[in-house]
Simulated scan of single mutants.
Amino acid sequence: MVEYKLSDYDYHLPIELIAQEPLAERDKSRMMILEKRTGQITNSIFNRIPTYLKQGDLLVLNDTKVLPVRLLGQIVGKDTAVEILLLHRCRDERWIAMVRPGRKLKPGIKVSLEEDVTALIEDYADKGLREISFSVREPIEKLLPRLGRVPLPPYIKKELSDPDQYQTIFAAREGSAAAPTAGFHFTDRVFAELDKKGVEKTFITLHIGPGTFQPVKEDDIREHVMHREYYQLHKSTVKALNAARERGGRIVAVGTSVCRVLETVAESNGYFAGEAEGWTDLYIYPGYKFRAVNTLLTNFHLPRSTLLMLVSAFAERKNILYAYREAVAGQYRFFSFGDCMLII
């Protein structure tokens, strides 16, 4: 029987287990191995991941790069503090953004930012968002390194000593408001060991939005509306995916963002017809039948989140919640800078 009640995707997490910073050596994070059919658990270390993969397997990683899209300012002529989180360009030089405090940021309001830059609230957008323009002629992206801050998840209270701590080592394509955190654990050393074993790797791009942190609020999880995110599936990736399937290798999705892209684009037989790009709002929860992904590397997710529902669909809810209870008991580190789980 499939559980659709929101309360079925809750668990107790002591606040001290929420990791506030990454490990000095990324590949020494702990890794729980979960056998999705039996629920069997093995505790390991991430740098031993080559032990659990086979020659011919294919790692698929998200090469998105986090932009410093968090802007701080104040309403012109007032002392009201404002926070703007840019999501994506919508038309011309306008951007779609999350804003706080929403009630005071109506169309026509101007916000003073640093370096004499002004943001204008142009219009309302869907789901409480805003259309915003800027007072500068050059694209705002060029000014973000100076104006913006890294948009850390709300549960991380500690400022980073280095913004690159919130990037994967293979981040290449700018556009995310959040990092693909399952990729944090990889180092050049681990990639070299995987290469030696004959495990291949390839990349997709999905620009992650802050909606990934939003809890589901509907009592019936099927009523939740998923946020949309832009993705690209490259021609070289399609070739690698189909070749892996032909040789019997496993498709190993590194993170839920990769999983959603592959499941969005895959044909019913698990193959891929060709390169693709667009917007996905694929919402995966128990009852979903996976077409492409065989193995999933993922961090430990927030209670009542769409990410927890995705992994519950992949490995059965009872197995996931049991694994999470074991992770809490074993003092695993949770969320973005935390430890990880390899579901095989």
Rank of each mutant, 00 (worst) to 15 (best):
L308R: 11
M309P: 00
H301F: 09
L105N: 12
S29K: 12
M98V: 08
R250F: 06
Y166V: 02
D116R: 14
P139G: 06
D219C: 04
E193L: 15
F290I: 04
A292T: 05
A253N: 02
D219V: 13
L310Q: 10
W95C: 05
R333N: 04
E122T: 10
V293L: 02
Y322N: 14
R317P: 04
G175H: 01
S305C: 06
Y230K: 14
I109Y: 11
L58Y: 00
L233E: 09
L206R: 13
I208R: 02
Y332R: 00
P139W: 06
I221E: 00
Q20P: 07
W95V: 07
S305N: 05
R91P: 10
L113K: 09
H185Q: 15
L34C: 05
L297S: 04
Y283Q: 01
P180D: 14
K239F: 07
Y288P: 03
V199W: 09
G209N: 01
L147I: 07
L6F: 09
D195Y: 07
D92R: 11
F213M: 12
Y332H: 04
I84D: 05
D195Q: 07
S7K: 04
Y324H: 03
Q40H: 01
Q167R: 05
L71I: 02
L61C: 12
I84C: 06
L17F: 13
Y52L: 00
H207R: 06
E267L: 15
S305P: 01
G128S: 08
T237N: 10
K142S: 14
I84Q: 02
H234L: 11
D195P: 00
L143K: 09
L160P: 05
